[in-house]
Write a protein that binds this DNA or RNA. Structure first.
Lengths: 221, 221, 221, 221
DNA sequence: TATGAATGAGTCTTCATTCAT
DNA sequence: AATGAATGAAGACTCATTCAT
């Protein structure tokens, strides 16, 4: 359940989907686009501003991406892939068998892993979140390639723990939902409040309480 | 904790912020705007399409709303007010004192009340959700008038139950967060899956399991 | 076989296809478009230049014509209609019966009538001629609505004269072709040379010789 | 009055105006340009499409032709030269003296010779026809190098026949005009209808009737 | 010689907004 | 109050042309 951890954006910037290497200008275009899209939203972003921030001519953008939407997809598509990376790693089955003795370890790992990911890819994820409702192709792909895979894997993990002990009375999909809700609620609040200087947010404690809450809620503690 | 329950949109349509009554054309403009904004997003919506759907001339919109953004705010601002309506009702203090004997009743009431609200105001809430990140004034107002008030009220409720019994070891803000996470997770999944014909979503059961999960998680059951 | 003779462009400028009246600005747009298209060709004309010459904002063009091509069609389509006007006049059958005793009268009438038309509509016809090869819809319409009708009428006239006397040995379509070739050759040269100050072009004589040539060529004189 | 008959395009492709040989890429550029220009018109053609069809890089075109217009002229200029080739052949004077005993032989030769030429060079002639009206230099050159020469030669031929017999009453320029009109009308219709499978176009007969028509029209038969 | 990334002026088109009626 | 013609700034995108490699 570990990610590659290095900033995969760099990878994204080094190679396009076709495997070719990106020129330096192309990288700057993608970086600027991520910035501007995240800041103003896709529809309200102008290619001219992206070009300006990237320090290239507007035409240069269209040499690399036929349309503005292609540029969006070039950003969002690999993000989806990376989003599920930890769940499709070749070692994943081993995880199922051995790595975690207790469900709270699974929860802790998920939190740590995805928090790191979120921090590194905040802008891209913001774009993803904002644009999915307006682009059916993105929706479909997200449903199929992200939700589908992740939920299936998580349900298998849950099923394994259910086989060993309690929480048998709940469908595994329900367990997954309740677990994810708690984690996402924790991450969301942490994202908003956890970075303020004046914050009274004891991250260590909040995380542990969240995990304990889920464990108790599922009858595991 | 009860809402007015009737479609308050009608109210919105009958009176503008200044207390005046809306003409029929103005109502049609607002209705169309809600539709179009929800469908395409604010930035990608054109006033001309809104006018067309409303069956009015392009200029008419600007007779009632100085700018496109004013039209957005005229939709979104009352939505915020209504969003917190149940928490600011004059009878709210009584709620604190008497209405609910047990925390699971609070949870159940929140779920029922807000689900109904969501169903009636899906489009408006979609707009709210989508646009808040891009409009600082909306953000600020949401923070102050919605989050601030709702959280404060909820924390007072929680504090009351904490005073009476267990879950003392958790800060009330944490309790609120965990409760809301679970509820929103339930509502979100329900919104997506709960309406499919082929769905294997037993709404009654999922809701009760969610409530039981929270109660157990908080050490109340 | 007489045309309405007044400058039908004015009609074109007064009413759009739907029968509505044109505003003054719209008229100026069409006029300028005719000028510019004739001068530079459709593809090399820019809407911004058309707007400038018309003294309107560029956006105004697109209020009246959804696309640049629509503007072209709005010019070209009525031209086709007018091009065949003399052949579809209600009185046309009478023409067949009575008006012309001898084929040379037909030729003379065609020349006079179409020369006048050409002079008044030079630019539009230039556009028609230039653009037809690149727009299949225009081609099709021209084939069907112009060529088809005109040739059929002319063949009927020719057939009538064939029934009365000689030139029986030629198919009527061949007679029509030969007649039109001669007339168009005359008109073409006249158009180029006939207007030069230094020209040694005796119009009256050239026309009569052309008619006589055709008559003799068909064995009628 | 005989042409070289082989596809002179190959010559065009082998040598540029300066007498140098063309590389294979340059040939492919010219070929593609002819195709694209003929298909879409000069103004609507893009150098990038030409490059693509030719299988060369965009920049390569500009290594051989400084501008897009230069490329056009490199195609059109030699076409004009070839167009008049039969009239400037060194043996032309002999033609005047001997080759043709009767004017109908002249007409027949012109038809055969130019039809062949047209078939081989349809695209280039289409370009010529389409672009001449928009390029004054081309116009001027056409007027001077093509029309001027051809008409003068034809008038000399006509004058010779006039000296021998009848048609004395017409100016030789008029005779040329009438002859060419008939021939071009024949070729035009043939070009359009003569290739349809379902056509009722008896080419042999139409050609002979056309010649007979001219001869009779000129009082020669 | 050939390449193809880069350019930036220019294209058609859209859009929020104004204003005379 | 309502209209809708008019605006012009801005948008996405194209294209002939240049130039470092």
């Amino acid at each position: 359940m570990n990610d590659t951890k290095e900033a995969w954006i760099e990878e994204l910037l080094k190679g396009d989907g076709a495997g070719g290497k990106m020129t330096e200008k192309q990288s700057r275009i993608v970086e600027s686009a991520i910035e501007v899209f995240a800041e103003k939203g896709y529809a309200a972003s102008s290619t001219s501003e992206i070009a300006q921030r990237a320090g290239v001519a507007e035409g240069t953008i269209f040499r690399h991406y036929k349309t503005k939407k292609d540029l969006l997809l070039a950003i969002v598509a690999p993000a989806m892939t990376k989003l599920i990376a930890p769940f499709v790693l070749r070692g994943f089955n081993k995880v199922l068998d051995s790595e975690y003795d207790s469900y709270d370890q699974v929860l802790r790992a998920m939190i740590e892993n995805r928090i790191e990911f979120l921090q590194k890819n905040r802008n891209i994820l913001k774009i993803l979140l904002q644009e999915i409702p307006f682009h059916p192709e993105m929706q479909e792909r997200f449903q199929r390639d992200v939700l589908g895979i992740v939920l299936e894997r998580l349900q298998r993990i849950v099923a394994k723990f259910q086989g060993q002990g309690r929480m048998a009375e709940l469908p595994s999909s329900t367990v997954v939902r309740l677990s994810i809700s708690a984690i996402m609620g924790y991450i969301a609040v942490r994202t908003v409040y956890g970075e303020r200087e004046d914050a009274v947010w004891d991250d260590e404690r909040e995380r542990e309480e969240t995990i304990r809450f889920v464990m108790r809620g599922l009858g595991l503690a």
